[in-house]
Design a protein around this nucleic acid. Structure first.
Length: 445
RNA sequence: GCCCCCAUCGUCUAGCGGCCCAGGAUGCCAGGUUCUCAGCCUGGAGACAGGGGUUCAAAUCCCCUUGGGGGUACCA
């Protein structure tokens, strides 16, 4: 591979950066970094109706969040109008393009498509042949003075010295038009690599109805950027061994277009969740804690009075248990509120049973005298209690869990009680035995 | 309609003529660890779309069919 590789990511700012675009950006970025080349960003805002400032900003933010830094740009096509006009008029002067007026009276410049066979040697598809007699003369400069996609793209890629065009394979059929333009200008044609598209979970084209499709949504749901990058990298590319979790430097080192495949891939949230969970497990608590704090705060939890050490313990306790920060918050919400929500099914199953009220009374009695309310002391007193009562610990655990957390599922009960603190713990036990447990009328048989 | 691309477990993939009665991951199922769940460990079910060729030999090469995707705009 030549040492002066230059690639670009050229999104149009008509919406947020979706995961298909992010994957295209990622492949370009990896290719550039692997080859010690240049990665540039170009905003293709030639559709005056649909392009927005917000979309541009969202795309830039997403790129930064993913860590896809660019070496040049962002360039904006809307700021290069004179150049396109000049190039278009040059073609007219040479007889390769012509002014054309449509039915509505709009005057545009149309490129004269020559008949013949065009071959492209795609880096991942091999040779693809087109009969250009099937392609009609197409507009290169619109009535509003803006260039069309195919035209601006060629002018820019040529002027900016792009050596490899890595883009979605939905652009394959644009390629013969672009090659015709390169030839008309006498520009050197770059290499093309058309990567497969990413489909929704049902195999159809990705759209809003597939749920989260933008990288900002994944960020907001509490995914780690590296996990998303890792997941995206493995959609259409594989390092060739059985390794699935790989660091950015490893990805850069191993990335080649030869190992990119041509089959479109369906996005799979379940696997992304697994991967994010792996990243969370592999991220030290010291790094996770600040992220947690930020995420919880954004979600409306008052973190100001939360001690740093306590937060560390919480993250530690849930380290292997949560897949995203949103998931983390859902699991731990009961720590942060005074009144908790009870899972009715759990209440019915574990609290509305004969003797449970008395059981919780015993638990309350065993636990309330503990001065140093830590895991060790709590466990000791509860183990003693089960011994005294002659029951297995599992007899106690679930009713306590429901009374304290509101749910039948949680992290270890001793650790949970310690982190929750004596006051909240005893308060909830008291509340549960008085209000939620079975009375003689509500006992289920 | 016409043109183009694609086709291995549900999903992501390894495989680039013999190493494959197809490997890994995820998900699923079962067992183990255990206060629940998650995690972790062990095991299991699960695919070369179909049909023709080529070859001593095909998941791998060729053709057809079928299926999916893309294009056919003064959208990108």
């Amino acid at each position: 591979m030549s040492s002066h590789v230059k690639v670009r990511f050229a999104p149009s700012p008509t919406g947020y950066l979706h995961i298909g675009g992010a994957r295209t950006a990622l492949f370009n970025w990896l290719f550039a970094r692997h080859n010690k080349g240049v990665f540039l960003l170009r905003i293709e805002d030639t559709d005056q109706q649909r392009s927005t400032e917000e979309a541009t900003q969202a795309i830039l933010d997403s790129m930064k969040w993913l860590g896809l830094d660019w070496d040049e740009g962002p360039y904006f096509q809307s700021q290069r109008l004179p150049a396109y006009k000049q190039y278009a008029e040059k073609l007219v002067a040479e007889g390769k393009a012509f002014y054309d007026t449509d039915a509505e009276g709009r005057k545009a410049i149309r490129f004269k498509m020559l008949d013949g066979m065009t071959e492209i040697n795609d880096l991942i598809h091999g040779i693809i042949t087109f009969d250009t007699s099937l392609i009609e003369d197409f507009v290169i400069l619109k009535a509003d003075g803006f260039p069309t996609y195919n035209f601006a793209c060629v002018v820019d890629d040529a002027e900016m010295g792009i050596t490899h065009i890595i883009r979605g394979d939905d652009h394959i059929s644009n390629t013969p038009k672009q090659i015709a333009l390169y030839k008309a200008f006498g520009f050197k044609t770059p290499e093309f690599a058309h990567i497969p598209m990413i489909l929704g979970e049902d195999g159809s084209r990705l759209s809003k109805r597939h749920g989260a499709t933008s990288v900002t949504e994944y960020r907001d749901k509490g995914y780690l950027p590296h996990a998303l990058v890792n997941f995206l990298a493995l959609l259409g590319w594989s390092p060739g061994n059985d390794v699935e979790i790989l660091s950015i430097p490893e990805m850069i080192e191993k990335f080649t277009l030869k190992r990119a495949n041509k089959t479109s891939a369906q996005f799979n949230n379940t696997k992304l969740d697994w991967m994010n969970g792996q990243y969370i497990k592999n991220t030290p608590v010291e790094r996770l804690a600040p992220e947690t704090k930020r995420f919880f705060e954004k979600a409306g939890i008052d973190m100001a009075k939360i001690a740093e050490g306590w937060l560390f313990d919480l993250v530690e306790l849930y380290h292997d248990r949560f897949k995203t920060f949103q998931d983390f918050l859902n699991q731990t919400r009961f720590f942060f509120t005074d009144t908790i929500e009870y899972d009715q099914a759990a209440v019915t199953k574990f609290l509305k049973r004969e003797g449970v009220g008395e059981l919780l009374r015993e638990v309350y009695a065993a636990v309330s005298p503990i001065d140093n309310f830590d895991k060790k002391n709590i466990e000791d007193s509860l183990r003693n209690l089960t011994e005294k009562l002659g029951v297995g610990f599992s007899k106690l655990a679930q009713p306590m869990r429901v009374a304290i957390t509101g749910k039948s599922v949680s992290a270890g009960i001793f650790e949970t009680m310690e982190l929750l603190g004596k006051e909240k713990t005893t308060k909830r036990l008291d509340y549960a035995m008085k209000n939620l447990c079975a009375t003689s009328e509500t006992i289920q048989f």
